[in-house]
């Protein structure tokens, strides 16, 4: 091929970008097919997280006091900060898609770096929270002590949480199992996403997206926003159960 962006064929049809596959009538059709496929993948992801959300709903109804007590051990400051960080990273990714669409290489590189940094910040804050759980003996299966809910200690500057009866205190382990399963699967999605971000960053620096072949970036944008949506639901469900009690 002589030109990097345009392939010429004998007679059957006119010019089209070199990255347009021959079984597509037009770029519009190819784009539509690509995002359609991505959305189908995201639907399976909705079902995947949906199973955990259903388990959460059932157990929350069964062991509501344990869920309230478990939720109150999470840091509202860290949780809210992380929500802000993730929403901002979604915004920078949306800007990255816009830069790619309008063929701004510098803007695209900057957006990808910012998204990567914000993703790292999210995981950093998350690991601080996980470490806190480890210190407080709130890690189900590995390091768990229900007695912290039977005899709650007052945090400095705060009144102690109301104590739970022993059987209900033991059910906080269910809450923490769901907490780790849901935030852990969410974090795994973030880690995969950040691997892809590094790949796209290298490609963008090489100028691989300058010819307008940006389906990868657009589909990654969909993935990243989906991960954001999962967190938008996880945050109130895990952190904000009856904070007023």
């Amino acid at each position: 091929m002589d030109s990097p962006t345009v392939a010429l064929h004998e007679s059957s049809h006119g010019e089209h970008p070199s990255y347009q596959r021959h079984h597509f009538v037009s770029m519009a059709q190819q784009k539509e097919s690509a995002s359609f496929g991505m959305w189908l993948f995201l639907l399976t992801e909705i079902m995947f997280f949906g199973g955990m959300f259903t388990a959460y709903l059932v157990y929350r109804n069964w062991y509501y006091p344990a869920f309230v007590a478990g939720s109150h051990t999470l840091s509202i400051v860290l949780g809210t900060t992380n929500t802000g960080v993730l929403i901002t990273s979604s915004f920078t990714m949306a800007m990255g898609v816009w830069c790619a669409e309008t063929r701004r290489r510098g803007g695209l590189i900057l957006s990808l770096i910012l998204t990567l940094v914000l993703g790292l910040a999210f995981l950093g804050i998350k690991s601080v929270e996980y470490h806190e759980k480890w210190v407080q003996h709130h890690v189900p299966g590995l390091r768990f002590d229900a007695m912290t809910f039977v005899h709650p200690k007052a945090e400095p500057g705060q009144a102690a949480e109301p104590p739970l009866p022993l059987d209900m205190a033991q059910h906080t382990e269910v809450y923490f199992s769901l907490y780790f399963a849901m935030t852990g699967m969410h974090a795994l999605h973030m880690i995969i996403g950040m691997g892809l971000l590094v790949y796209m960053l290298i490609q963008a620096i090489r100028g691989a997206y300058d010819n307008g072949n940006i389906a990868f970036i657009e589909n990654f944008g969909l993935y990243w926003h989906f991960v954001d949506i999962v967190w938008i639901f996880l945050f109130p469900l895990l952190y904000l159960i009856s904070r007023h009690q």
Binding site: I76, T80, G84, I87, F235, P236, L240, I241, R243
Partner: peptide, 8 residues
């Protein structure tokens, strides 16, 4: 996000 924290 601020609203949902306040509402809780």
């Amino acid at each position: 996000t601020a609203l949902t924290v306040a509402a809780s």
